[in-house]
Design a binder for these strands. Structure first.
Lengths: 319, 319
DNA sequence: ATCGATCATAGTTTTTAATCTATGAAAAAA
DNA sequence: TTTTTTCATAGATTAAAAACTATGATCGAT
C-alpha cells in the first residue's frame, strides 16, 4: 500500500469541500491532478472513496474512515509543528476558535491583546449560535469553543472564565422602568422578544420561567442580539439579554434595565474542548490566557444602561 | 516544511534501533540513504534530531518529540489499514500480544482456535515476566497484555477473563502431603522456592504471607516455572504456583498439591490495555474472543497432580 | 599506530510522484 | 435539445524524491 502525504492532503481537501473542482482551486491545482491523486489513493486502499450521485459526490464508508484518519494524522503533525516552534522559543501556529454569537461582543477584546503578545499565532474565529457551535464541537472542527451553556451529554472538558449575567431590559419609557422588585410573573406578562431556537440566551431564559411554572408569550423570534436591542428600543417588547451584549453607544438612553425578581440570571462563560483531545501548545496558551487575563481585560468594558446597575459577581463560579 | 512519510518511516526506524546502519539493514537500504533521509527531515524541522556521543547516537529533545509524533501517525494509519481490511470483509491485520511467563501455558491453547478462525490475522506473542510486561505496556509496544497483576498506578483498562488459582505444591513424598488443613505458618517453615523478583506469582505469594505476618525463608530464586517444578520434584523445597503452570506429563506422580490454609489464592487473569488507547479491530476481536471463549477452551485442559483436586471457581471475578 | 565501526558528504542515476493540457462522459440545468 | 457543470481518462512533461557507489571523518578498540 503506497500512500503519500500529498495524496492524503488532496483527498482531505476534496472530502472537506465535497468537490474535486473546488479542491483543485483551493490547492491551486488543475482538476485532473486532484482526480489523479484521489484515484491513486483509492487504488492503494482498494476501495472507492467517493461515490457520485448526480453532480454531487459523497464519501463512502471507507472514505469517511480515511477522512477521519487524515484529520487525525494532520492534527498530530500540526500539533508537533506547534510544539517544535514552541521548543525553538517562539509560539507559532493556528488557533481555531468558535464562539456563540453573544460572545462576539467581548471575545475580540481578548483576542486583541492576545494577538499582540503572540504575533506568530494566527487566529481564526468562527461565530455561530449555540447549537451550531455544539455541532462544531461534536465534529471536532476547532481547537476551543466559547459558550455559556456547554452540552451535557458528551465527553468534554470545560472551564468557566468569566461571569455572564443575563438581565431584563425594556425601552426607556417602559411602565416597569421605575418599579422596584417587579415580580417575575408580572414581567412575564410583557411582550417577550426571544432569540431563535438553539440560542443559549433563549435556553437560559426559558428555563428560568419554566422553573417558576410560568408560561411566556413570545411575541417574536429574532436571530440577533443587535436586532433584539433595536426592537426593544423601538417599543416592540422586552427581552432578557447578556450584559455583554449591551455595547451601548447607539442605544444609549433608549434602554433600561428592569429590577425583576430572579434576575440577574447568574451564569458563566465557559471555554470548552473535547474531553479526550490533546490540546496544541497554541490552544493551551490561549486557554491559560483566558483563565488569567479575561477578568481584568473586561472589568471596565461592561457598561450598563442607566437607572439601575446590575451587580456582576466578581471572580468565577462553577456551573 | 516539506516532509514525506518515507522520511518519517526511516527516521522512526533509526530512532527505534538507535543506529543508522542497523536501520539501513532493516529497511534494505544503503546507509547513506538513511543518513540523507534523516538529514532532510532534520532540515525541515530546522533542528538536529540526533546527537552523536562516541559511537552511539541519541535522540535530541526535538527528536524525541518527533519520534512520538511519528509513532502516533503510523499508529493512526495502521489502525486505518486494519479497519479498512475489516471493512472489506476479511479480518486481517496484526495482533501484538504480550503475556507474563505463567500465561504461556494456556495462551497458545487460545491462540490456536483464534488463528484458525481468523486466518488473516497474524499474531505476535511476546513472553516476559510481569515487570517486563508492565514496561512494555507503559511503552505502548503491544496491542493487548495478559497478566495476573495489572499495575495500579497508571491509566489502563482491564478485564478479568479467567480464574487463576495459585496453589502450594511439594514433592510426592513430602511429609505434609497427606495432612489436612495444614496451617499457613507450618507451610511457611518449609524451604520455599520463589520466582525471581518482578514475577507476579512471587508478588502474590509474598503478599499472602505478609498479610498473615509471616516471614518466609526463600531457599532459592528461580527464573522459570518449569525449573521450579523440577526443583520441587527433586526435593529442593516447596513452592506456590499457578495451576496453569502444571502441565504435568513429565512430572506426573512426582508432585502433590498440599492442603494448606489460605489456599488456593484466588486471582484472575486479566487482559489489559492502555486506558486511552483506541483498539484496532483485530485487538477488539481478540479481546471479545478472550471474554467469550477462554473459559470453555481451557475448562478441561487444567489437570492437576494427584491427592487433591483444587476447586477452581467458575466464571469471572473482579479484582 | 592501526583497524574497524559508524555516520556524513559528494556526485550521480533511477524511479516515481506530481503536474499539465486536451478531451471524453454523464447528468443536471436551460 | 443544447448547454453547462462536474468528474474521469489519456498522454506527455517536469520536478523531485530516493536510491546507489565511493569516499571521508571521527572515535573507540586492538
Amino acid at each position: 500500500m503506497h500512500v503519500t502525504l500529498r495524496q492524503l492532503k488532496v483527498f482531505e481537501t476534496v472530502a472537506q469541500l465535497s468537490s474535486f473542482t473546488r479542491a483543485a482551486e483551493a490547492l491551486f491545482l488543475s482538476q485532473p491532478t486532484v482526480s489523479m491523486q484521489v484515484k491513486q489513493l483509492s487504488e492503494a486502499v482498494e476501495q472507492p472513496l467517493f461515490e457520485q450521485l448526480g453532480k454531487k459526490i459523497f464519501l463512502t464508508d471507507m472514505g469517511r474512515e480515511l477522512h477521519a484518519t487524515c484529520r487525525e494524522m494532520f492534527d498530530t503533525w500540526s500539533r508537533f509543528e506547534m510544539t517544535a516552534a514552541d521548543m525553538k522559543g517562539l509560539k507559532r501556529g493556528r488557533l481555531r476558535l468558535a464562539c456563540v454569537s453573544t460572545a462576539k461582543y467581548f471575545i475580540p477584546r481578548l483576542l486583541g491583546p492576545f494577538c499582540d503578545r503572540y504575533p506568530g499565532i494566527d487566529v481564526q474565529l468562527e461565530v455561530a449560535n449555540r447549537d451550531a457551535v455544539v455541532e462544531r464541537l461534536a465534529k471536532n472542527q476547532d481547537d476551543l469553543y466559547i459558550m455559556g451553556m456547554p452540552p451535557q451529554h458528551f465527553d468534554i472538558a470545560l472551564h468557566p472564565f468569566l461571569d455572564n449575567p443575563l438581565i431584563p431590559i425594556a425601552p426607556a419609557n417602559h411602565p416597569l422602568a421605575n418599579k422596584k422588585r417587579v415580580p417575575l410573573k408580572r414581567f412575564a406578562e410583557e411582550q417577550m422578544l426571544l432569540r431563535e431556537r438553539g440560542s443559549g440566551t433563549r435556553m437560559a431564559t426559558e428555563r428560568l420561567f419554566r422553573d417558576h411554572g410560568i408560561v411566556i408569550k413570545a411575541r417574536m423570534e429574532i436571530g440577533s442580539n443587535e436586532a433584539i436591542k433595536h426592537a426593544v428600543a423601538g417599543g416592540l417588547g422586552v427581552t432578557v439579554i447578556s450584559t455583554h451584549a449591551l455595547t451601548l453607544e447607539p442605544l444609549h438612553g433608549q434602554l433600561v434595565v428592569l429590577d425583576v425578581e430572579g434576575f440577574p440570571i447568574r451564569r458563566s462563560w465557559y471555554v470548552v474542548h473535547p474531553g479526550n483531545k490533546k490540546l496544541s501548545v497554541v490552544a493551551k496558551t490561549f486557554f491559560e490566557y483566558l483563565q488569567s487575563e479575561a477578568p481584568q481585560h473586561l472589568q471596565e468594558s461592561i457598561a450598563l444602561p442607566p437607572h439601575r446597575t446590575v451587580r456582576t459577581t466578581p471572580g468565577k463560579r462553577n456551573g
